[in-house]
Each structure stands twice: as C-alpha cells, then as structure tokens.
Write a protein that binds this DNA or RNA. Structure first.
Lengths: 126, 126, 126, 126
DNA sequence: GTGGTCTAGACCACT
DNA sequence: GTGGTCTAGACCACG
C-alpha cells in the first residue's frame, strides 16, 4: 500500500479517502480488520498522529469501529457502505455541475462534454 | 457586487474565482478596469491586503495587468479568456471523472448519472 | 520617438535613460533644444506630470537646462557628456561584476563568458 | 546569517537572492532544511510576513518545497540548481551587454572594459 | 513545532 | 488617486 500525497489536501483526508475507496470497491469488506496506527504509520512513512486522526474521523463517520483490545474493523453494517458511496458520488457531481454552470455551460454542453471526456479518458484507465 | 464567503476556501481564492467567472461570462470584458484594491476591500468588507493578494495572483496568471498609477485592467488579450475557461472546465471535469472512477463507476454509469443530475437540477438554474 | 515601457522601472527613469542615451550616442547634441513637456507627453501617450518629473531630474543632474521662455536645452557643457557616459557604464559594470562574483564566478570565468556572449549576441544587434 | 539590506530593493527579494546564492555556492545543499519563517524573521529582525513572502516566491520558482508540518526544504532536484545559476547569470549578462550597447560601446570596447575591471577589482575579491 | 491566512494600519513611489 | 511593501499581531490546520 502506497499513496502519493498531494500537498494541497491534508494527509489525513487523503488516507480517509483511500480507505473509503478500498471499502467501496470491495477490497476491504465489512468486518475486516484494518491495520493498526503504528503499522500504517510506518508503512506510509508518516506521523502516527496523522494516522490516529484519520481513524478518529472514520470512526466519527461510523465507517470504522474499535473493538477494545482487538483493533479496528470496518463496520459490519453493509448498508453503511452504499450510503458512503452515494455521499461521495453526490458531492462529486454537485461540485462538478455547480462549477460548470458557474462557467456558463448549459445542460446540453455539460452532457456532451462529459460524454466526450469519458471516452477520451478511457485509454488512461487500467 | 457581493460574495458569500465559504469558510473552507481562502478568501483570496474565492475572489479570484469570482473575477475569473465574471470574465468568462463576459461581465468583465478584456481591457476593462477592475476595481481598485481599496474600493473592492471596502465593498467586500475585507482587508485591503487580502484583495492585494487576489490581484497579485491574477496578475501572475496574466489575467489582469497593472498600469502604473492608473489601476488594474483585464488583460486585453482576448485569447486568454478562452484559455482560462478551458483550464477551469478541464480541472472540474478531470476531478469529477477521476473521482467517479475511483469510486468504481464505469463510463456508462457516469454518463447516466450526469444526465439524470443535469435534468434534476435544471430547476435550480436560471 | 517611441519607447516600450517596462513595467518594472518607473516611466520617468526610462525616459531619462532614453534621453541620456540619445545624448551619449550623439543623436542629441549639446545645446540642442529638447521637446516641451506637452509635446513629449502627447507623443509618448503619458501623463505630463511624468514628463515634468523626468525633466526635473535631468536638470538636477545638470544634463538639461531651462532657458526662461525659450524651452529646455541639452547642457552645452560638452565635458558633462563624457561624465554621464562614464557614470552609466561604471554602474553597469559594477553591477555586473558584483553579481557574477556573488554567483561564484571567478575572473577568468567572467571574461570568457563575456567574450562568448558578446559574439553570440552580435547577430541581434542592428 | 546577516544581510545588509539595501533600501532600494524590497527586502523579500533581497532574501530570495541571498538564499539562491547560498544554494548556488553550495552552502545550502539540495534536500537541506531551511530556517522556519519565525526563526529567520527573528534572526533578521524583520516581520514574519516578509519572510513568508520570500519563501512563497521561492516555492513558486520551485527552488524550495514545503513538507507539511515539518518545514521547508531546498528542492532535492539537483538539476534545478544549475538552472537557477544559468538563469541568474544570463540575466546579469543580458542586462550588462544590452546596457553597454545602448551607450554606444562596441564588442571590442566591452571586452576590454570588462578585462580591465575584472583585474582592477580583484583586490576586493577574496 | 510548522506554514497559511487574515486583519489593521502604515509609508512610499508613481501617475 | 493608484499599487507595492512592510510591520504587528492574531487564529487556524497540520504533523
């Protein structure tokens, strides 16, 4: 596991997003154990405090839960996962459409631009 | 002119975006004078230094130019405007599509979601 | 007469330098009349105050002198011209050599670089 | 570390130049940590904002990079250093030669003047 | 501890 | 009037 950090976004948010994506795409399943703070910190070469903060936030969002003395686990509540996915997608799309409208694009423009981009970029996907 | 400030983004960036949008949508034309630092600061109820920062960055992006002792003007190079629009739109769409892909959406999914969202939100547009 | 203004240097200094060069290279001779403030201002499309300032400074440096009711003239004292030339050249060379030394260049380096540059740039001269 | 400030040039530019020279002459190596904003500000007896401005500009020129919460470091890309040196030297020499030409000096004149000045000033160098 | 942003207010050079 | 720079001091997020 490696993450290329983007300097503009707090590291803890980048890790949060990374873990959420792992869950959404099924690489982390509900009930799976996630790495300990120390493990993850040394693996990613970052400060344990930062990892700690990541997990705190994930817990606040009820995506991860602590089992005393056993470690942290992905919430076993499967419905939560779909909720996260919808939330993240909803945010993405809202941002996008609001931004495009502010630039003066109309609905048809937006649709055709997306259509083009989606195909154009299919080469880059793996 | 009023801007509702969003606390998560630096004010100077929000003003930058605001002005870029004014240019893109034609409310500010190439060669137009933009407000002075002091004017805009008092209008927006913010510190002149913050406005100064905004203009400095816009100048670095060659969107605005200073004429000594006279004030600042939108760059008279019309071609710049299309460039800005494309840059801003490109960034929006890249972010969006990358994000959706990371969430596991496929091209068809993305397209249909956008189609739906665009119509759904047409009420809000004016 | 036209000058392309460089935004980093005050306009009045740029005009001063321009006039000094005209004198040094003999295009303006000692005793020649120079244009009036209004003439020069309208020719260069700048504020008369700026031209006024230029002339004031040139007068302070005794390069130009006012003859009441007749206009301004290049000083008739020929020796002054050589002085100006030496001053300007001296400043240029001091700046240059100090700068190069600060960058760690040695005497030999400086000489060879200048030799190269001088030849390299002879194409551009007209 | 002390800098004698020249009143004609903005302080932040003088510090920028100072740091660039430190890097070029090898006193600051790629990857080295540079002083924190507060440190340098108190050392040079200037306002932290001024130092901040300095570093911001150096960062924009990719000479320095920020590691979040850790401090700022000289870019580890060694090639950048030669680029800076060439840029700075190129600017010096361009200014110099253009200036001398404008004063009516010919290539031979320039060369001999430099030769003389370099030797003349060798006393001051160390 | 670090840097990033912002406010308040000042002085200066330039047009 | 304009912008450019600087000081003084504050608050915040991040690691």
């Amino acid at each position: 596991m490696t993450i290329e950090f983007d300097n503009n976004l707090p590291i803890y948010l980048q890790i949060m997003n990374y873990i959420k994506r792992e869950i959404i795409t099924g690489k982390l399943q509900p009930g799976d154990k996630i790495p300990s703070v120390r493990e993850l910190a040394s693996e990613l070469q970052i400060n344990p405090n930062t990892v700690q903060r990541t997990f705190q936030e994930l817990e606040r969002e009820e995506i991860v839960e602590t089992r005393r003395g056993l470690g942290r686990y992905v919430t076993s509540e499967g419905s939560k996962i779909m909720t996260i996915k919808k939330e993240m997608a909803g945010e993405l799309i809202d941002n996008f459409i609001r931004g495009m409208r502010e630039l003066g694009f109309r609905n048809e423009d937006i649709l055709s631009i997306v259509a083009e981009a989606v195909n154009d970029k299919s080469r880059e996907s793996r």
